[in-house]
């Protein structure tokens, strides 16, 4: 018999209560139970970074987290980054402007990781940006566009905070 638990997880500000198998990964909970397919599943063993989400504001690999471990916690996925359905976050806009993605598979993990970086460190150096995304594999861009996008978004967010 499958071992299950009733869990309550707040995702992008909305509370969800579901009975889930205890072996269910958080990545599969988000995608299959909540139908939030923005979180991508790449390697499923914590190497590629595509499934990165924020748990209580801190980046984490959702494939290395059981859904039951998120019980009572707040999760933010890539769907939670944009301020609303019609507007992009500075980071998202900068990724578009600087060609920070091609196939887009790694992009959700890159965005959530950079979201945390820029929140904690509004003026990162290029090295700090590269270090932050060292756990995110991108096979299309060679990272150059992603790094440029992060630095540009940081600059725009600082300007926005000043105005």
């Amino acid at each position: 018999m499958t071992d299950t638990r009733k869990i309550t997880v707040t995702v992008n500000g909305k509370s969800h209560t579901k009975e889930v198998p205890t072996r269910l990964l958080l990545s599969d909970f988000l995608r299959h139970e909540l139908l939030l397919t923005g979180t991508h599943v790449g390697c499923e063993h914590g190497v590629c970074g595509a499934c990165t989400v924020l748990i209580d504001g801190r980046s984490a690999r959702s494939c290395l987290t059981l859904a039951v471990q998120a019980n009572g916690h707040e999760v933010m996925t890539v769907e939670g980054i944009a301020p609303n359905a019609d507007e992009l976050h500075h980071l998202q806009q900068a990724m578009q402007d600087h060609h920070g993605l091609q196939c887009g598979y790694c992009t959700p993990g890159i965005l959530t990781t950079l979201f945390e970086l820029l929140r904690d460190n509004p003026d990162p150096s290029e090295h700090e940006v590269r270090s932050a995304i060292s756990g995110n594999l991108c096979r299309c861009t060679g990272y150059q566009g992603i790094v440029e996008a992060a630095l540009d978004a940081a600059q725009k967010m600082r300007a926005g905070a000043r105005s």
Binding site: T22, R23, L25, E44, H45, G46, R61, C63, L64, T65, L66, V68, Q69
Partner: peptide, 26 residues
């Protein structure tokens, strides 16, 4: 015993380990 899961969960995903019980000490 499961704590942060950053080593154990990859091993669970690969089924290198198949414990009957997980004790989450968080």
């Amino acid at each position: 015993v499961l704590s942060g899961g950053q080593s154990l969960i990859p091993m669970l995903n690969f089924r290198y380990v198949q414990p009957d019980h997980i004790i989450d000490v968080a």
